[in-house]
Design a protein around this nucleic acid. Structure first.
Length: 478
RNA sequence: GUCCCCAUCGUCUAGAGGCCUAGGACAUCACCCUUUCAAGGUGGCGACACGGGUUCGAAUCCCGUUGGGGACGCCA
């Protein structure tokens, strides 16, 4: 039997990070067993579904690299089939018209709650034969009145639910639109889905769907329900805790491999192994080993993982991604240094590509100003101007423009000025980048290039001169 | 409230009755390295929710309590 799994989001929002994990697990299971992975949009709620969300979900899946073999399928395009099934159920007496109004149902539930009962449809229209004038009916499924539904959830184990706990679910709305519970069953059946892997919020739907499969004379697929993802406070993950839109992670400079790796670990483990490629995940994936309890989303560990991937990725691979993030910041590198070179000296110190872009902007644009505190500490020193001037001259006269030669010049300056290396490097950083944080100063100078480095040093010297006059002027003014 | 599910460091987890003085990772703290920031290295802090059983022996099996989550829609 060929394994067929599916991911079936409703396009009522972007791809939630929890949905992404469910999709990953479904994808892995198919991959593991050489099966098929279907992407299907459950867009039966015409009010809330939107094409833009479907596109966003598609983009998320593509970014993650979770490619589907079939689809994307849209339930909204399968209406005739659903109505055909409803006809069949009606004819067999397995479904019936219900004329209760929403208001009546509300009252019924309120009364049930008052009696400490579980609110559910009491089946009052089950025996009705005559229509109720002026009230468009819904179609309800005639759920078995007694007995119990038992199913082996592939991750949660055996689950038993009494039929008395299940009410007659609505198959078709009063406006003629079929509902989720009908469509999933028909689709999973028609599409030959063998393994339904979905969020835990669907466990209670499962026995009802199993009854529906039975009514249709079909064997249900196997089910596996994966726990939900929580925020730091133990509440379901929401925008309050972290970004929940998958694409937001791309914008923030995360690598899909890192996100996938993190999501995989959030509910699955293989001994002490922390790092997995998609292939490695697929090789070990087993639904029975998916954890049964929900996990808390920890942005810090995701960040750490992302950093690991950034550190180990090839600069050539990261360069185009860095380019995008630079472009978003209005920076379009035209001259040196080459992007891969920037990546190679930044990847060790940047946890995201966004951070890398922020910290690399100075390579392509001279500082617009100098950090005030750093200025005070490193520029407003008696020797600052002499030091910068000396460095400027040394660099200008350097025979070979290489990192070791530049380093040598810096060491010489430290010796002749009787300064520590840090006291030479910091003013240089400030002059070149506008602040005191950069990759190693020799590498920074080297990749900036001789002309650019000299220009910036000279600009800093001009600034120092203006400060000398300016601060005196200010002190008299105050 | 009713039904279903779950329970090891702050977080993700290892753990299938003796290998557990409970292991790893993130975070955190200290130190080392150091040209800033990082990275790296070394070490520290830190958990079996509680109560009963079963057993020679329980983090591991059973029951209960507590706590958490899910569901209870003409949403999916």
């Amino acid at each position: 039997m060929t394994v067929v799994t599916r991911f079936a989001p409703s396009p009522t929002g972007p791809l939630h990070i929890g949905g992404a994990r469910t999709a990953l697990y479904a994808w892995l299971y198919a991959k593991r067993h050489g099966g098929q992975f279907i992407l299907r949009f459950e867009d039966t709620d015409r009010e809330r579904s939107a094409e833009t969300y479907a596109r966003s979900i598609l983009e998320s899946m593509a970014w993650l690299g979770l490619h589907h073999h079939q689809g994307p399928l849209y339930q909204s395009q399968r209406m005739p089939r659903y109505h055909q099934v409803v006809q069949q159920l009606m004819a067999a007496g397995l479904a019936y018209h219900c004329y209760c109004t929403p208001q009546e149902l509300d009252e019924m539930r309120a009364a049930q709650r008052q009696r400490s009962e579980k609110p559910r449809y009491d089946g009052r229209c089950r025996q009705r034969t005559a229509p109720r004038p002026g009230v468009p009916p819904v179609v309800r499924f005639r759920n078995p009145p007694d007995g119990e539904v038992v199913f082996d959830d592939l991750t949660k184990g055996t689950i038993v639910v009494a039929n008395t706990e299940l009410d007659d679910l609505i198959l078709v709305r009063s406006d003629g639109q079929p509902t989720y519970n009908l469509c999933v069953v028909v689709d999973d059946l028609d599409m030959g889905v063998t393994h339904v892997i979905r969020g835990e919020d669907h466990v209670i739907n499962t026995p009802r769907q199993i009854n529906l499969f039975a009514a249709l004379g079909a064997h249900p697929p196997r089910f596996a329900h994966v726990p939900l993802i929580m925020g730091a406070d133990g509440k379901p993950l929401s925008k309050r805790h972290a970004a929940v839109d998958t694409l937001a992670y791309r914008e923030q400079g995360y690598l899909p491999q890192a996100l996938l790796n993190y999501l995989f670990l959030l509910g699955y483990s293989v001994g002490d192994q922390e790092r997995f490629t998609l292939q490695e995940m697929a090789d070990v994936f087993d639904l029975a080993r998916v954890h049964r309890s929900s996990a808390v989303f920890d942005p810090k560990k995701l960040l750490w993982l992302n950093h690991q991937y950034i550190k180990e990725s090839s600069p050539d691979l990261l360069a185009p991604l860095l380019l995008e993030h630079l472009a978003q910041r209005g920076c379009v590198p035209s001259a040196a240094p080459p992007l891969p070179a920037v990546v190679s000296i930044q990847q060790e110190r940047c946890k995201t590509l966004a951070e890398m872009a922020d910290k690399s902007l100075f390579f392509y644009a001279p500082p617009a100003g100098y950090a005030p505190k750093a200025t005070e500490r490193y520029f407003l020193q008696p020797h600052a101007a002499r030091l910068l001037a000396a460095m400027s001259q040394q660099l200008a006269e350097l025979g070979e423009w290489s990192q070791p030669e530049i380093a040598r010049a810096i060491h010489q300056a430290a010796t002749s000025f009787q300064l520590t290396l840090a006291d030479v490097a910091q003013p240089l950083r400030l002059a070149l980048s506008g602040d005191t944080v950069s990759p190693p100063i020799d590498a920074t100078i080297y990749w900036l290039g001789r002309d650019e480095a000299l220009q910036r040093l000279n600009a800093a010297l001009v600034f120092l001169q203006s400060q000398a006059g300016g601060s005196a002027a200010r002190s008299t003014a105050c």
